[in-house]
Design a protein around this nucleic acid. Structure first.
Lengths: 332, 332
DNA sequence: CTGTTAGCGCTTTCAG
DNA sequence: CTGAAAGCGCTAACAG
């Protein structure tokens, strides 16, 4: 691979000049610029990003950590972030945290050590204190789906509690009285908040929470199935179930059918997230919209403005959930 | 951020010694190792990967380019690759190619300029020649879902033609005569091969391919729906449809129902890939298994062996498809 | 076992 | 507008 030195040699200019044309520095005469460009062309020169990064302390790349690389949730988010940066000629480096404290920290360390200009984090396991501390470091961070008060302006969030409330409220309004709940992992704040919303709706309707109608899953399809099987087996009657996310709803619906239930006649189901596949399910899933793409777009926007342009731009930090009613619910 | 120099100062040793303990060089006395470790601890030192990479010409990171960041296909693949490398203390840098020649090239350039030790590529748009040329460069590459003869040992593939054959054959065996086909983009080799397999099965059964029973989609759900709508509108009767992948099958099934068809009574459907959601659909989708995770595992294995351990290890390069029969098909 | 000394390829003052 | 020179933080011979 050709180096900047070889290019300068070939073009008969100094190394600094080559650097200038690479960086589009305006104060280079058109003449020499052309000479340099030609030399670069002929040598097939491409700057070594590592060296640039070391010398300039700027990498033009943004680190992203997500809980998972797979699944219908993070894909669109990463995609949106990437698209926003691509048009600004920045690159993303993605690392999975796997909802594990050590792995999340190691992902963050890796990205920092790689000289990322900023970090966009969707993390579950690390503490607020850790994040607050991290925010004091040299690398700017923005948080998705977390609320850390000391850096509230860089926390992008959905009102999950309200979302959970809406989901259950919709069922209540349709006359359902016995509503089961298949929750996400309760140590995660979002899962917890959604469940809190469910309880609020119940309470408001004067219905007492029945713990035998509750199952804690892990946000994946299979646990939705397990949850449904479990609930069905208890024998406790219920005419509707709300799930902590769409994936579990999908698993639950599949299992419900295996149990001989007709959907939505025998059982109404509501999910959470409005993943792409929700509208292709049968029956089409009623769910709470989680604007993941917007999260990504806002996060990217914040970084572009504050880190690269150094302009202060207002970003929306909290989003309101919205219920998307489709065919998976029916009046009682 | 503390540098290696500050650590050496604090520990009262030379800079080289610190480097040695960072790199687990065995020839450091236990005593000084402890001193250095302590100093590192106190300063919260973490090596600057960029500098390490520049100095050693080794980054311990592997570049991956995938067609898309979202969707049920690439997620599990990235995940598997990442998991394999994680345990070896290597990191992955993921970049999307978006099935666009320029973007794929720019993703590759980016990864190379970032000093990746190897590249794992799932690309559609760049030419075989380009890849063959690339393979001659300094950065080792392994290809998934491509066949480039000059580097056949690093091409990991599914026999897509055979997969397409199996899908249609299954339907034929069930007595279906009029089989529609919703294809992936025909400029992609995999989509093309699957369709070729379909044609072979038809031919073998003495059935002539009917072009009015063909629709070319783009591998996404929405185009599956569009395809079904289109086929339904032509009025040409068909009792089964095979789709280029599971996502289009999902879209097609949804649209079929919107057209008033019962599944699988009125229409049998078979997909391709065996994505996770296929088994949660209703009816559960019959499909051809595409061992994406295996692809990822093999690719990672190749890199670990050939790039890092410098040991030659046999990797499986071509996988045989397998039909997974579920509930979405029925005898005619 | 440990220290010295060149770089890795590029950016960035500072002069001119 | 252009060149010289000093690093960025770390690794890797080479001595000792």
């Amino acid at each position: 691979m050709a180096t900047i030195y070889q290019v300068s040699k070939k073009a008969g200019v100094s190394l600094a000049t080559v650097s200038r044309v690479v960086n589009n520095n305006p104060k280079v005469s058109e003449n020499t610029r052309l000479k340099v460009l030609k030399a670069m062309q002929e040598l097939g020169y491409r700057p070594n990003a590592t060296a640039q990064s070391l010398a300039s302390n700027r990498s033009n790349s943004i680190g992203i950590v997500v809980s998972e690389l797979e699944g219908p949730f993070f894909g669109p988010m990463m995609c949106e972030i990437e698209a926003n940066f691509r048009s600004a000629n920045k690159h993303v480096i993605i690392a999975p945290g796997n909802s594990d404290e050590l792995q999340e920290k190691s992902a963050i360390d890796f990205l920092i050590s790689r000289n990322c200009d900023a970090l966009i984090l969707y993390v579950d396991a690390v503490s607020d204190d850790y994040l607050a501390e991290l925010a004091k470091g040299d690398t700017p961070i923005v948080l998705i789906n977390r609320q850390v008060s000391s850096i509230a302006d860089r926390c992008i969030n959905l009102d999950n509690e309200q979302g959970g409330y809406l989901a259950t409220k919709a069922l209540l309004d349709l006359g359902h009285q016995h509503i089961a709940y298949i929750a996400g992992p309760q140590w995660k704040v979002d899962a917890r908040s959604r469940f809190d919303g469910h309880c609020r709706a119940l309470k408001e309707a004067g219905i007492e929470f029945d713990s035998s109608l509750f199952y804690e899953g892990d946000y994946h399809e299979s646990s939705g199935s397990e949850g449904m099987l479990y609930l069905h087996k208890t024998g406790r009657p219920f005419s509707a179930v709300v799930c902590g996310n769409d994936q579990m709803a999908s698993g639950a619906m599949s299992a419900a059918r295996d149990c001989g239930l007709r959907l939505p006649e025998d059982l109404s189901v509501v999910g959470f997230d409005d993943a792409l596949f929700a509208r292709y399910m049968h029956p089409k899933l009623t769910t709470v919209v989680n604007p993941v793409k917007e999260f990504g777009a806002q996060a990217a926007k914040w970084v572009l403005a504050n880190v690269y342009d150094k302009s202060k731009v207002e970003t929306q930090t909290v989003f309101e959930p919205e219920l998307r009613i489709r065919d998976s619910v029916q009046p009682r």
